[in-house]
């Protein structure tokens, strides 16, 4: 996958241990097994809202939130593609008793990113230092103007190299030792063709469009490998749109953070010594 060349390494540095990127040396399967074990143990997570014992978690959720995927007005994609995008993020992070990407309107996050250059100051980097949710003024809403090279980076990401002279250094096939060939496709083109293909495949299966499919069928299609959609890219964006700061469009009403019992940004108040060293005594509601 084209984008993975660049994104492979992003994924490695999550657990912040100073020097290290984190270790997903742990094979993903092992990790999931450990989490699942912990989840099933009851003491860890049994009291969370909407929590069900692991044995009862169906591989594919039975409810079908796809039928009422919230549709907000798209800024970038056509209404039809935005509908497909909403159905896509919903299938990737479904509502299985707790809100997922549909409730977070992660599609709005993706649509906003794809159209970042439509605004005066491109909506790439929110401002600082505070959101205003915990005191101080809201600085996040004032986006940071891009430097010359930042703009180029984000135009390449979103629009691709597209034969533009100053973007050619980022073509996939620069350097004879790499497998990839050709221009680097941008997010926008990848979504447009990928979403159109999802709709076409849904039609071939007898549905009106992708959003018309039950969520289980949408997931099956995405897992089948038959769809041209870059599922990994879409999944990363769905996660960002669900658990990222709402200033970027997703995580509507903080549903993403609430769903996973996470406090989100904390500046300028931060955490007290007690909240930091004794988290059991004080959950987020006590903050």
């Amino acid at each position: 996958m084209a984008w993975d060349l660049d994104h492979q390494k992003v994924s490695r540095r999550h657990f912040l241990l100073d020097a290290t990127g984190w270790l997903l040396a742990v094979p993903a399967a092992g990790f999931v097994a450990a989490c699942t074990k912990a989840r099933g143990s009851g003491d860890l997570a049994g009291d969370l809202p909407g929590e069900v014992p692991v044995a009862d978690v169906p591989d594919v959720p039975q409810s079908d939130p796809g039928s009422d995927v919230p549709v907000t007005q798209p800024r970038t994609l056509s209404p039809a593609r935005f509908l497909a995008l909403s159905a896509l993020v919903d299938a990737l992070i479904p509502d299985d008793g707790t809100p997922g990407a549909a409730a977070a309107v992660a599609a709005d996050y993706v649509d906003g990113m794809l159209g970042a250059f439509a605004s005066g100051v491109p909506r790439i980097f929110a401002g600082g230092p505070y959101s205003g949710r915990h005191g101080g003024l809201d600085g996040f809403s004032t986006f940071v103007p891009l430097t010359r090279v930042e703009e180029l980076a984000w135009r390449i990401r979103i629009e691709g190299t597209k034969g533009v002279a100053e973007r050619q250094f980022a073509r996939l096939d620069v350097g004879g030792i790499f497998d990839a060939v050709g221009e680097l496709p941008g997010f926008l083109a990848k979504y447009e063709t990928g979403l159109d293909d999802l709709d076409a495949q849904a039609v071939a299966q007898g549905y009106a469009n992708f959003a018309d499919m039950p969520v289980a069928d949408r997931r099956a299609l995405l897992q089948s490998g038959d769809a041209s959609m870059d599922v990994r890219m879409a999944f990363e964006h769905a996660v960002e749109g669900t658990y990222g700061d709402p200033v970027y469009g997703g995580n509507r009403d903080l549903v993403g953070w609430k769903a996973i019992d996470y406090e989100g940004d904390r500046q300028p108040v931060g955490y007290t010594a007690r909240q930091m060293s004794n988290p059991e005594a004080l959950g987020p509601e006590g903050l």
Binding site: A28, F31, I93, T98, E236
Partner: peptide
Amino acid sequence: FGAEPDQPWFTHKDIMIPGIQ
């Protein structure tokens, strides 16, 4: 954590909701 591409997306909520990490 959630966007870790090595994680199979179909188990995403199993990981995120208990918030193990």
